[in-house]
Simulated assay, not measured.
Amino acid sequence: MDMIRNNWTREEIEEIYNLPFLDLVYRAATVHRQHHDPQEVQVSTLLSIKTGGCPEDCSYCSQAARYHTNVKVQKLMEVEEVMAAAERAQDAGSSRFCMGAAWREVRDNRDFDKVLEMVKGVNALGMEVCCTLGMLSEEQAQKLKDAGLYAYNHNVDTSEEHYDDIISTRTYDDRLNTLENVRKANLSVCSGGIIGLGESSKDRVGMLQTLANLPKHPDSVPINNLVPVAGTPLEGQDPASVWDMVRTIATARIIMPKSMVRLSAGRLELSYEGQAFCFMAGANSVFSGDVLLTTPNPNVNSDKELFQILSIKPRKAFKDESKAPVEFQVTPTAGKALGIEEVVIS
């Protein structure tokens, strides 16, 4: 069985990435079967709980305030609205519910208090709760953990060398510091990147090296393909090919054997055959639902059909029990959203 390593060199990863395509997929599939059930895929739902108006300048993002896109700014949703969306996602087969807010960073204010209520409420449903809220401190990460958060997403996006071509409003180290704060709170780390940003294959290798050489591999590694958005600097950029997606996923699987590798944004452009290749190469998680934050995504019925064709079964929540919340109480606000007075789960 492949040994877990955190000292990969660029040369080693590059050699893997550039293997003959079918050899690469075979090797990745072999590693995948050593550590995971190849017929099992985690289904997650991602909801934008606060949309648009972000002060960052990420070149790919429709939610940056400085770009003129079709995204309308919306304030933070109410707890009841989020709970209803989480219940719908659970009924549709999702075991993880992710909440994204277009913030540069988490601030200790009423909005953050409301997010904590959302976390408590969704956790009470028995779903894995994930948030992506921008940068956060160690204390804020701990508050989220205490509320019942299971995972926190904060992508590195691309290689350190290519990063400044994509984002100037926060540094690569800012991202790594947030991941460190998430780890310190013993939250499940979700961190990956985006391909199709005009990067080279060496940049993809560099991004994967950053992730694989973290003190602990991310529990979840989303691999996104650019969805060009009109009004952003990358609106004319061609997304990466399916072959590049498979190569990136396969390499991630080989160097981070135990991580969940998520086939994320850009899936609508992939055929069933292309997605099947990604699953064969080690992807074992997808986002379900018509919209992924603000970009289109395959609908639930399409995914059900694909899963049936491939004999794939959805992964159950909290399979990695080391990250599962042990005990929590639902506050009156979250309880009201659930239609209950009080819940204690141990």
Score class of each variant (00 low, 15 high):
Gln90Thr: 06
Ala28Val: 02
Ser95His: 05
Lys50Gly: 05
Asn70Leu: 09
Leu19Gln: 02
Arg33Met: 15
Gln63Ala: 01
Ile13Asn: 11
Lys75Phe: 07
Glu40Ser: 13
Val73His: 02
Glu40His: 07
Gly53Cys: 04
Pro55Leu: 02
Val82Leu: 12
Ala64Arg: 03
Met99His: 09
Asp57Asn: 08
Arg27Asn: 08
Leu19Ser: 04
Val71Pro: 02
Val79Leu: 10
Gly100His: 11
Asn70Asp: 14
Val73Ile: 15
Glu40Ile: 11
Met99Val: 02
Val79Thr: 10
Arg88Thr: 15
Cys58Ala: 01
Ser95Met: 05
Val41Arg: 09
Arg27Phe: 05
Ala89Arg: 06
Pro20His: 11
Ser95Leu: 09
Asn70Gly: 14
Arg27Ile: 00
Asp23Gly: 13
Cys61Asn: 00
Ile16Gln: 01
Gln34Leu: 15
His36Thr: 09
Ala86Ser: 06
Tyr26Trp: 08
Glu56Cys: 01
Ala65Leu: 09
His35Tyr: 15
Leu46Cys: 06
Val43Leu: 14
Cys58His: 00
Ala65Pro: 04
Ser44Gly: 04
Glu15Gln: 13
Phe97Thr: 00
Leu47Gly: 01
Thr69Pro: 02
Cys61Ile: 00
Leu24Pro: 01
Ser95Trp: 05
Tyr26Glu: 14
Thr51Arg: 11
Val31Ile: 10
Tyr17Lys: 01
His35Asn: 11
Asp91Arg: 15
Glu12Phe: 11
Ala86Met: 12
Lys75Glu: 06
Lys75Trp: 14
Ala86Gln: 05
Ala89Ser: 11
Glu56Tyr: 04
Ala65Lys: 14
Gly52His: 04
Phe21Asn: 02
Met77Arg: 14
Ile16Asn: 03
Gln74Cys: 10
Leu46Tyr: 07
Met99Lys: 03
Phe97Cys: 07
Ser44Trp: 10
Ile13Lys: 11
Leu24His: 03
Gln34Cys: 12
Tyr60Ile: 01
His32Trp: 00
Val79Tyr: 10
Val31Cys: 05
Thr30His: 12
Val41Trp: 02
Leu19Pro: 00
Leu24Ser: 07
Ile13Thr: 04
Ala65Met: 07
Arg27Gly: 09
Cys61Thr: 00
Gly93Lys: 13
Gln39Ile: 05
Val73Met: 08
Glu56His: 01
Val41Leu: 12
Val31Ser: 07
Met99Asn: 09
Ser95Tyr: 08
Ile49Phe: 12
His68Val: 15
Glu12Met: 09
Gln39Pro: 15
